[in-house]
Design a protein around this nucleic acid. Structure first.
Length: 622
RNA sequence: GCCCAGGUGGCGCAAUGGCAGCGCAGCCGAUUUGUAAUCGGCAGGUUGGGGGUUCGAAUCCCCCCUUGGGCUCCA
């Protein structure tokens, strides 16, 4: 997640200005950073008072405040947190001055003799004579590159928010520390606004809306990470599938179907068992069904003969490609598939619809010659733009993931170079801004990924465009070129939605549950005012359904006001109120989601209007 | 996977060692109403699962499942 990355990056940033500054020496942003960093020092001071044996690690400012990592003799409780907070406020009120100075590494080693994490930070300096910064306020001194306010009373309003586990230096093999997070803003109002924003974000959290709107559920019995789409959620998903099918058919994609299982031998050849085994569900051995005890001896099993739930389609699509001999004239050859994949995501990673164990990609594999890379990537980028425009989602960013130095990247530097260059030029030609990430490429090639943020600020990858220089060769894919020579094709792996599950989660939050007409599970609901209006209400609904719309009738014995309230809460785009006047004039009164009353519309006009709105996938409900 | 905090009718919550309760939703009945909640009644829980402590466990202890917040991971 990029926001985490940016947190990490702050550790390595050297502040532009010296240890301590007054408010008029630095700009507002830097001043805020300094308040946050200074608050982290006060936090460490207080924790050290309460736990003299505490080992303290690092405590940088972050986007919304600060944190500090500690190794403590026991877990911190919520009560500890409020106690710490109280004492921090007290210390701040005492108005200690921050004094920053430089000392030699050798001196610092002595000073922090009982602080192993500080010692490790000092290890990165080669010479003992080098200078490092330390910052002192009250009785507390920390190893510190600087970046403080002048005194503790200048620190803005804050609140400690939570404790979390965090690995030392972000490495899961290293000790896990307790990270105390705090929110800090320049003013009380801004701090309150921050928490109000969080509350607002929670209101549009897809996990909450999914329940309220009856879109999806999970079951302990079915299993973690397996989303169960309720009828209304399934309707939205069907519309998503329909859209991408339409767009892809128009662009020369051909749909294939390859099921859910494949033998281990396939994944061995593709390289996935070597690079990806931990995310695959374990092997299913046919011998396990045998009554012969000898045959279930693990040593006798061959992973190659076992079956696996497929975690991706690529090797299967390549095998399918191999069922025939292909010519360069067929290229680009585009295989599309919408089949569910299964990935054993670690339990701690699961999150609503955005991180699941059964996921359905709008997955395609495109077979091309190396010369075609750039042009085909451009076509895929166009498809991405069209899709996101249709959903009205403008806020995304691209990352270009390049190979790093590691041995994960199979050699053939020339092919990699071509691939990277082609990918980059396609992005540039499309006028797309992107960030390059070295060492983030797939084991089989470089890729361009699209990220969006969810309601609570977490970033998720949706679209991906990956070049594959490895698997086609491993799986023996060939094509005949214009000279009659057999060559290995390049394959583009690409998904536009990413997975329908994750995209649905993002969509729910993007619209805050108020879907545009074409996606809304119920598009129009007829509300008869009294029982005598029910016949006409039913007729209106029937006519709308004949026009291809999803319409129903609220024939409960509640008052109209209550039905409107329910329909509104269900975020139905159009509520059609039907009373004496409407029955009389063969019409329905249209109430737009949000409250606008459009007055009575004749039934045939209503049908034509709504079905055109649906057909055009218009974004506004009115 | 790791750390922390949770799991009580479908949903949101209360009960902290001594009779499991409230609201919404649901069902039944009455009401027939013009743009965000009509009234009355009924029903609904072996307190996530298993084990333990105790005269007695939703409440304390252990294991597991699961959710949330982080960390790590994300071909």
């Amino acid at each position: 997640m990029a926001n985490d990355r940016s947190e990490r990056d702050t550790l390595d940033e050297v502040p532009a200005t010296t240890g301590v500054a007054s408010p008029d020496e630095v700009d507002a942003t830097e001043w805020l950073r300094r308040m946050r960093h200074s608050a982290a020092h006060v936090l460490a001071q207080v924790v050290l008072q309460m736990f003299p044996e505490a080992k303290f690690a690092i405590g940088p400012p972050i986007d919304t405040g600060f944190y500090y990592d500690f190794d403590l003799p026991r877990p911190l409780t919520p009560e500890d947190l409020s106690q710490i907070q109280k004492r921090m406020r007290k210390e701040m009120g005492r108005n200690h001055r921050f004094v920053w100075q430089e000392i030699s590494v050798a001196e610092a080693r002595q000073r922090f003799a009982d602080q192993p994490f500080k010692q490790e930070l000092l290890d990165q300096f080669s010479a003992d004579a080098e200078q490092v910064g330390i910052c002192t306020h009250a009785e507390f001194t920390d190893l510190c590159r600087g970046g403080h306010v002048e005194s503790t009373r200048q620190i803005g309003p804050f609140r400690l928010t939570n404790v979390a586990g965090a690995y030392w230096r972000g490495d899961e093999r290293r000790p896990q520390l307790q990270r105390v997070y705090g929110a800090l803003f320049p003013s009380r109002e801004e701090l309150d606004a921050h928490f109000a924003r969080i509350e607002e974000a929670q209101r549009r959290d897809h996990r909450r809306l999914g329940r309220e709107l009856g879109l999806f559920t999970f079951s302990e019995l079915v299993g973690a990470g397996v989303p169960l789409l309720l009828p209304d959620g399934a309707i939205i998903r069907q519309q998503m599938e329909r859209l991408i099918r339409e767009l892809q058919e128009a662009r020369g994609y051909q749909e294939v179907w390859t099921g859910h299982l494949a033998r281990g031998e396939l994944f061995r050849r593709s390289g996935h068992l070597d690079n990806y085994a931990e995310v695959m569900y374990p092997a299913m051995h046919e011998q396990d069904r045998s009554s012969d005890p000898a045959s279930s001896d693990p040593a006798a099993r061959d992973e190659a003969d076992a079956y696996f739930l497929k975690p991706m389609n690529c090797p299967i699509h390549m095998t399918l490609y191999n069922s025939d001999l292909h010519s360069y004239r067929e290229f680009p050859l585009r295989y599309a598939e919408y089949t569910t994949l299964y990935r054993y995501e670690k339990s701690g990673q699961l999150s609503g619809l955005t991180r699941v164990r059964s996921l359905t990609q709008d997955d395609c594999h495109i077979f091309i010659t190396p010369e075609q890379i750039s042009a085909e990537v451009s076509r895929v980028l166009e498809l991405v733009q069209t899709l996101f425009q249709t959903y009205g989602m403008p806020n995304f960013r691209y990352e270009l993931s390049l190979p790093g130095a590691g041995g994960k990247y199979v050699d053939n530097p020339q092919a990699w170079q071509t691939a990277v260059t082609s990918l980059r030029s396609a992005l540039d030609d499309a006028g797309i801004d992107y960030v390059e990430q070295t060492g983030e490429a797939a084991f089989y090639g470089p890729k361009a990924d699209l990220f969006v943020s969810d309601a609570v600020g977490r970033e998720w990858q949706l679209s991906t465009i990956q070049l594959d220089l490895i698997q086609p060769g491993r799986l023996g894919c060939v094509y005949v070129d214009e000279h009659g020579e057999r060559r290995t094709p390049v394959v583009i792996h690409r998904a536009i939605h990413g997975s329908f599950e994750r995209f649905l989660g993002i969509l729910i939050e993007h619209y805050a549950g108020a879907f545009p007409l074409w996606l809304a599970p119920v598009q129009a609901r007829c509300i008869p005012i009294a029982d005598r209006h029910q016949d006409w209400a039913r007729e209106v609904a029937t006519e709308l359904r004949s026009a291809g719309l999803r319409a129903d009738v609220d024939d409960g014995n509640e008052r109209m006001q209550a039905k409107i309230r329910n329909g509104q809460r269900r975020k139905i785009p159009y509520l059609l109120v039907i009373g004496d006047r409407e029955v009389e004039s063969r019409s329905a009164s249209v109430r737009v989601r949000g409250g606008a009353d459009l007055g009575a519309r004749p039934l045939d006009q209503l049908c034509a209007w709504l079905s055109e709105l649906q057909r055009s996938r218009a974004l506004e409900p009115d």
